[in-house]
Design a binder for these strands. Structure first.
Lengths: 347, 347
DNA sequence: CTGAAAGCGCTTACAG
DNA sequence: CTGAAAGCGCTTACAG
C-alpha cells in the first residue's frame, strides 16, 4: 500500500520546525508561539493530516475505545440499548465499537475477544453466552478485569453483570397469567435452556410464581425450542414447536422467552383455530416496538433499554478504573405492559 | 493504568533469548530451532501473551480491519447484511467493526469517519446519507479511495455504491398495484425525500410505472413523513401521516418506502375501518422477517441481503487494492413477494 | 519558545 | 540458527 497519510514529520519538514513543536501546536500546549501555531494549523489542514492514534496509543497506553460484542446486534431489542451505550461512551470520552458474532459458540466469542484485545481495546461489554468460557479463558482474557456481561446473570459471580431483573420479569409475567384466570401455564424457552438450567432467571421467576400460587410445575408445560437463533430471532422455531405442542398438550396460558418467539407462537395458535386470549393468553418479553403492531397486540415485560445500555458502559468504566473491586451485579427494574394478547382474561 | 499486557521483551527476558528470536518463533519463521520454538510457545502461553497489533500495524501499515458505519444498525434489515459482511471479511482475512451513528447528520458522520481513520482502518462501508458530505469532506477523508456507499445510489457518481436495484423495486411494486386493479396509487416516502429528490430511485421507479401505464402522477398522492428515524424506524410517523391523509385523500393503493413504515400505515388503515386489500392494497419494501407475521401479511420487495453485505465487502477490498479505478455501482436484483396485503386485488 | 533524544512494541534487513 | 539495530508515528522529559 502506498503512502496515504501525512505525518507530523511531513508537517515539520514543510515548515522547517521540529516534530516536537508541531506536536505541541496541535495538542494545545501553551509553550508555542501563536505565530507558529497558526502556521502549523494551516499546513495540517492543507496536508489533510489525520493523527495516527494507534501510534499515540502505543506511546501513552489506553485507546479510549470500548467494544460491544453481541451475538445478534440487528435485533431491534438493541436499538435503544446501543443508543444508551453510545451516549455514555460519548459522555465519558470513549468510542464504542461493535462486533457481531457469527454464532454463540466459545470459539467465536474467544476469537472476537482476542482480536479486540490485540487492538488494545480498553474494555468489553459482552452479550453472549459467557458460560461457554472456561476458567482458562476467564484468566487469559482477564474477563474479570475489563469486561462486563450484558443481559443475563451468570453465577458463580466471577465478573460484572448488567441485566434486566429477569427473575422479577418471569415472576410478574406468570403472576399476571395466573391472575387472568389461566390454570395451565406453559413456558416457551429458548434452545439453550439445558445449558443455562441453573441460572435461568426468567424460568426461576416462572417457577416461583407458580409455587406462590400453589400451582404445581409440570415438565410437560415447559416447551424448549430446537434451535434458537437460527432465523428470524427464533420466530420460526417457536412456530414449529407450538404447532407440535398444540396437538399434544393442553394449556391456557403461555409465557414466551421473548417477543420474537411469541410472534411465532401466536401465529401457530391462530392457525390452530384457538383464540387469543380467550383460549390461550400470551405474554412475551422485551416489549419490542413491533409488539404493538401485531395482532393481537402483545402483552410483554418491559424495561428501560436505553438505561440498560448506559449503565453497562458506566459499570465497565468503573471496572477498568478499579480492577481490584469485587464483581457486581446491576439489575434494571422491569414492568409488565398488558395488551390484547392477555387482556380480559381466560374464559 | 498499570501494566496489563506481556510483551515480546518479557518473553525474551524469561528465556534469555532475543526479541527477534521470539518474534520469529511466534510468527512461523523457519529459521528457528524446534527446541527454541517450543520453549517460546510455552512461556507465551504462561504469560498470557496477546500480541499488540497496533504496534505491529504501525510497523507494517494496514490493519486488516474494515468498518461498517450505519445510522440504524439494530434495524432487522441488517441481520443478514451483517452476516454477509462478516463472512466476506473472514473469507478475505479482515475483521469487521461496526459503529452506529447517533443521528444521520454530516457532523456525526464525519466524526465517525475521522475516528475510524485515526485508528487507521483499511476501509469503510457507509450506510448513511452521503449527500451530507461536502466536497472538502470527500477529499479530506479520501472517500473515493477507501469507502463504499451502501444501500442508495448517490449521483454524481463520485464513489463506489452497492445497493439493491431500487428503481426496479419501485417499478415492480407500483406495477403490481396497477395490475391488481388500483387506480389511485399513493407513495409513502420518508422525511428525507426533499434532500434526495433527484436521486430517489424507488420514487423514480414509481413514477415510471405510472407513466408506462398512462396514469398521471398526482402530487397529492405523495405522502411524506414528518420525521423518519425518530422512533421505531418510522412506524409511528407513518401511522400519524396516514391517519391524516385517510381523512383528506382518496386512494386505493399504497406503496410504502419500507416495511416498517408499512406497519404504521396498515395500523392506521385498519383503524379507519377500511379493509386491506379490498379497499386499499399495500406494498412494502425490504421484506423483513416480521412482515410475514403481521396481519395482513405484507406484500414486499425482496432481495438477497446476505449477498448485498458480502458484495459490499468484496467491492471495498477491490477499491482498497485499486484506488485508481473509476467508481462503480453494483446493483443487487430485486423481486416482489405477494402476500395478503395486496392479494386478490381491489374490488 | 524550540528541539534533540529516548521510548512505546512490534518487524525487518542484515551480519555473524 | 541467533541477535543487534533501525524504524513505524507518536509523546515526553529534559536541555537550551
Amino acid at each position: 500500500m502506498k503512502k496515504r497519510y501525512a505525518t507530523l514529520k511531513d508537517i515539520a519538514k514543510a515548515l522547517g520546525v521540529s516534530v516536537t513543536t508541531v506536536h505541541k501546536a496541535l495538542n494545545g500546549h501553551p509553550d508555542v508561539s501563536e505565530e507558529t501555531r497558526k502556521r502549523v494549523l494551516e499546513v495540517t489542514e492543507k496536508l489533510g493530516y489525520i493523527k495516527n492514534e494507534t501510534a499515540s496509543n502505543l506511546r501513552t497506553s489506553g485507546s479510549n475505545t470500548i467494544a460491544f460484542i453481541s451475538s445478534n446486534i440487528s435485533n431491534p431489542f438493541y436499538e435503544q440499548v446501543i443508543k444508551g451505550m453510545n451516549q455514555a461512551a460519548e459522555d465519558f470520552g470513549y468510542m464504542l465499537l461493535i462486533t457481531n458474532l457469527i454464532n454463540d459458540s466459545r470459539d467465536d466469542l474467544v476469537r472476537s475477544i482476542e482480536i479486540l484485545m490485540k487492538k488494545r481495546i480498553d474494555g468489553l461489554i459482552i452479550a453472549a453466552n459467557m458460560l461457554a468460557l472456561n476458567h482458562q479463558d476467564l484468566r487469559k482474557y482477564k474477563i474479570r478485569e475489563f469486561c462486563v456481561a450484558f443481559g443475563t446473570v451468570f453465577p458463580p459471580e466471577e465478573f460484572d453483570v448488567v441485566s434486566p431483573n429477569n427473575f422479577k420479569g418471569g415472576y410478574i409475567a406468570t403472576k399476571h397469567l395466573i391472575e387472568s384466570g389461566c390454570k395451565k401455564i406453559a413456558m416457551l424457552h429458548s434452545s439453550n435452556f439445558e445449558i443455562e438450567k441453573n441460572l435461568n432467571e426468567r424460568f426461576k421467576g416462572y417457577l416461583r410464581a407458580l409455587q406462590d400460587h400453589n400451582i404445581e410445575f409440570s415438565q410437560e408445560l415447559l416447551f424448549i425450542q430446537k434451535q434458537f437463533m437460527s432465523k428470524s430471532y427464533g420466530t420460526q422455531s417457536a412456530y414449529e414447536i407450538l404447532k407440535e405442542k398444540l396437538k399434544t398438550t393442553q394449556f391456557d396460558g403461555l409465557f414466551c422467552y421473548n417477543d420474537e418467539t411469541a410472534y411465532g407462537a401466536i401465529e401457530a395458535i391462530k392457525e390452530s383455530g384457538l383464540r387469543i386470549p380467550e383460549d390461550i393468553a400470551v405474554v412475551g418479553y422485551d416489549n419490542l416496538e413491533f409488539s404493538r403492531m401485531i395482532s393481537p397486540q402483545l402483552t410483554s415485560i418491559t424495561f428501560d433499554k436505553y438505561k440498560l445500555g448506559y449503565k453497562a458502559v458506566e459499570m465497565l468504566l468503573e471496572r477498568i478504573n478499579h480492577p481490584e473491586l469485587n464483581p457486581r451485579i446491576e439489575l434494571i427494574d422491569v414492568k409488565i405492559v398488558v395488551r390484547e394478547s392477555s387482556k380480559g382474561g381466560i374464559r
